[in-house]
Structure formats: structure tokens, C-alpha cells
């Protein structure tokens, strides 16, 4: 087995007193496209924020390329982020810059390339996501799917060694969704990037990824290749893949009091 690109070793994380991840361990191999799936609030996004170094675990280690993120200085952490692309859930384009300036942003901030070359690179990156010719538009003039693609072009501007996708399929129509999924797969194959994608869109993800982790209640409860997941008869996986409301995962929030008590129907209240 080769050395993993990303490794979680017994990671625990909590926001204040609310535990999000509990003693989580997994590995992602170099060059793989991996999906992390789970219901809302299962700590998927926190997982990405741990990899990008935006938050630090209370226990355990997050290693990227063999280095512990928690031990990095501010400058080293920024160095790590320069080699990383992050696609935000809603794109997070800079609304005061044009599309072209948005894509050029990482290039201008981190390189001393001449403006002509930057313009050419921007054209190439936009061409890669099929949006060449939109350089002069403002982000407010784009549809949701186009904005997501511009954000993708911006994320890959510095040819990152690691791509992180936060819910890349949320809120897109089926065609945009297909285009984004196709782009993610294509970029991964073309650039040889290691990629981690957080999503709850099971069917689309299974089509493109190499490996899947399922997260629930802060733990990894299942993993496997897409073929293994589809063939699995674990009740948990079946519920998730088929989208049934009841099963091992409870749809309702675990309220401390019963519904009857909340409505004042219990004996003694009336």
C-alpha cells in the first residue's frame, strides 16, 4: 500500500459542547476522487474544514502529504492552502470583481506573472469549464450553475494538488449537475489531483468517484467502491441509497420531550 495523501488519525471535534466527529480515522490515496456522504449535520463540512486547516481537531491528527496540519505555522498553513483548491457550496465568488478578475484572483495574489499571461491563463481555465467569453460579466449576472463553474475555474487556477468540493451538486438543475459532475471527473483525470467531495447526492457521486465513505453521528459507518456500495445489503446503506424516511437513521431531531408533552396533552397538565 502506498503512502496516503490525506490521513485522519483518531480525530475528534466538537463545536462548544456539541460533538461533531468522534474518533474518526480514514485514508485517501494520492490521485483518488473520494466522496464523503452522510445526512445533513453529520459533520461532512467540518471534515473538509479540518483538511483545509480552517479548524483544528481537539484530539487526533489530520495529516496531509505526511504533515500534521495542527503543527503548521500560519505561513506553512498558507503554503498548504496555495496547493489546494476549495469549491464552496454556493461558489463564494467575489461579488465586487468580474468573472475574469475572480478567476485571476489566486494568480494575481500568489504569482508575479505578467498581466498578459494571467489573461491567457484565465481564458484557458474558463474554457476548461465551458465559460470562455464571460470574463467581463459580474457574478450577479450568472445563473447558479454558471457561478459554480466559475468558482471551479477559480479553484483550479493554480493547478492544485488537492481539491476539496463542498456539496458541489446542491441546488443545481439536472443538466448543470451533470455538467459539474462531468467537469469534476475530467479535472481529476486530467490533472491527477487528489480530490475529496462532500455530498449527499448518492447516485451522481457513485457515477464518478473512486471510493465512498459514509459518515453518521460523527463516525464512518460504511465505506467501499461504488460497485461495493451498490451491491451492499447493509440496511443503513440501503436506506441512504433509496432515500427511505425510516430505518437506522432517524429523520426526526431527538427532542428531549415527547410530542405529547410539547402539545400539553400529557396527564396532569390538563
Amino acid at each position: 500500500m502506498t503512502e496516503p495523501f490525506i490521513e485522519f488519525r483518531g480525530v475528534s471535534f466538537a463545536y462548544n459542547d456539541r460533538p461533531i466527529l468522534k474518533d474518526l480515522s480514514f485514508r485517501v490515496e494520492r490521485g483518488q476522487l473520494v466522496a464523503i456522504m452522510g445526512g445533513s449535520g453529520s459533520g461532512k463540512t467540518t471534515l473538509l474544514r479540518l483538511i483545509s486547516g480552517q479548524v483544528r481537531p481537539q484530539q487526533g491528527q489530520v495529516l496531509v502529504d505526511g504533515r500534521d496540519l495542527a503543527r503548521m505555522s500560519h505561513a506553512e498553513l498558507y503554503e498548504h492552502r496555495r496547493r489546494m483548491g476549495f469549491l464552496f457550496q454556493f461558489g463564494a465568488l467575489f461579488t465586487d470583481l468580474t468573472v475574469g478578475e475572480n478567476v485571476a484572483f489566486p494568480l494575481k495574489e500568489h504569482t508575479d506573472l505578467p498581466p498578459r499571461l494571467i489573461d491567457d491563463l484565465v481564458t484557458l481555465k474558463l474554457n476548461a469549464v465551458g465559460l470562455r467569453g464571460t470574463e467581463k460579466l459580474m457574478p450577479s449576472e450568472l445563473s447558479g450553475g454558471m457561478a459554480r463553474r466559475v468558482a471551479l475555474a477559480r479553484a483550479i487556477a493554480l493547478d492544485p494538488a488537492l481539491m476539496l468540493y463542498d456539496e458541489p451538486f446542491t441546488g443545481l438543475d439536472p443538466i448543470s449537475l451533470g455538467v459539474i459532475a462531468h467537469l469534476i471527473k475530467k479535472l481529476n483525470d486530467a490533472l491527477g489531483t487528489t480530490a475529496v467531495m462532500v455530498t449527499h447526492d448518492v447516485h451522481k457521486s457513485l457515477d464518478i468517484v473512486d471510493y465512498v465513505f459514509f459518515v453518521a453521528q460523527g463516525k464512518i459507518i460504511a465505506e467501499g467502491t461504488p460497485a461495493e456500495v451498490r451491491a451492499s445489503d447493509s440496511p443503513w446503506l440501503r436506506q441512504f441509497v433509496d432515500g427511505a424516511p425510516e430505518g437506522p437513521v432517524h429523520f426526526a431531531y431527538p427532542a428531549p420531550t415527547s410530542l405529547a408533552a410539547d402539545l400539553g396533552l400529557e396527564a396532569g397538565h390538563a
Binding site: S52, Q54, E79, R81, F86, T95, P106
Partner: peptide, 25 residues
């Protein structure tokens, strides 16, 4: 309003993740 909205739409966070310090930029 501008900085607040940039924060609300994750633009500041995006900058930080792109290794650009939002306070400086």
C-alpha cells in the same frame, strides 16, 4: 454592509482558504 455581506456569502472564508489574508486584502 459590504464586508458583512462578504462574510455572509463566505467570500472572506474563501479568501482565507485561498491563502489570502482577508484583513490584508
Amino acid at each position: 454592509a459590504e464586508i458583512g455581506l462578504m462574510k455572509a456569502t463566505e467570500q472572506l472564508e474563501a479568501m482565507n482558504v485561498m491563502a489570502v489574508n482577508p484583513i490584508a486584502r
